[in-house]
């Protein structure tokens, strides 16, 4: 469904990544796992066309495209809610900006609010609710993009550990309930293990994929699943080598 071939991005003549390949089949949840500063966000910015790519091709559903800017929804570690709008107005932003049936969108957003435990908070301002609720509102907004591909940029890393655990299964809903294809970047090994169909370990400078793990247990997974712990040991072993082997 999404095929990235030979993608390259240079910064001051130094490659952040070059010859980067990725194949993301429809409906799959793939996670790029790597340390902070290894170029994951640059990769997303290049994929979405926020910064132009220096080489490579991106193919979406068999068609070559310049970037995924108009094809994917995007969720950032910051909730990026606008403080002057209510949660509902924030969730409706993608519809408001591109124009469309507002009544239907409001209906849909209302149902998502209920589904994600935000019922009754539609007219609250972002500063009146908790960080977890803000991130869930951002999740509703992401779904309101109404696009098949979702890019998640460390979506939960701004939350505290307890809140983060409670929100991980909500991310899983994107795949299981809303049939999205997901590419997520994170530095959280446990999060990757819980959510991913495929985990790609990244090395920095230049960023390359050097190992692929596909955790076996069906989702939803438990932290203490023996098979998962086995995979985790493998990942930690590779990360322990600093990814420079």
């Amino acid at each position: 469904m999404l095929q990235v071939t030979d993608l390259a991005k240079y910064y001051n003549e130094q490659p952040v990544f070059s010859g980067f390949d990725l194949h993301l089949p429809a409906g799959r949840f793939q996670v790029l796992l790597g340390p902070s500063g290894c170029g994951k966000t640059t990769l997303f910015n290049t994929l979405t066309g926020v910064t132009p790519k220096d080489a490579g091709t991106i193919t979406w559903q068999g068609q070559p495209v310049p970037h995924l800017g108009n094809l994917c929804a995007y969720m950032h570690q910051k909730d990026l809610l606008l403080p002057w709008f209510s949660l509902m107005d924030n969730a409706l932003l993608p519809v408001r900006t591109r124009g469309g049936d507002m009544a239907a969108a409001q209906d849909k957003a209302g149902q998502l609010f209920l589904r994600l435990g935000l019922g009754g908070y539609e007219s609250h301002r972002p500063d009146q609710v908790s960080g977890g609720m803000r991130q869930r509102c951002a999740l509703v907004r992401t779904l309101m993009f109404d696009r098949d591909l979702i890019l998640l940029d460390e979506p939960l890393s701004a939350l505290d550990a307890i809140t983060r655990q409670r929100h991980q299964h909500l991310l899983l809903l994107l795949q299981t309930e809303f049939d999205k294809t997901i590419l997520m970047i994170t530095h959280d090994v446990d999060e990757a293990l819980l959510l991913a169909d495929d985990i790609f370990l990244l090395t920095p400078m230049p960023m390359t994929i050097f190992r692929r793990f596909s955790p076996e247990p069906p989702k939803p997974r438990a932290f203490d699943d023996p098979k998962l712990l086995h995979t985790k040991a493998g990942i930690l072993d590779h990360l322990g080598k600093g990814g420079v082997s």
Binding site: T48, L80, R96, T97
Partner: peptide, 17 residues
């Protein structure tokens, strides 16, 4: 700029942004 990126990805025309 991260808000700008969000609006860019939503395909928002300048005057709406």
């Amino acid at each position: 700029p991260e808000y700008r990126t969000l609006f860019t990805l939503m395909g928002s025309p300048f005057f709406k942004t």
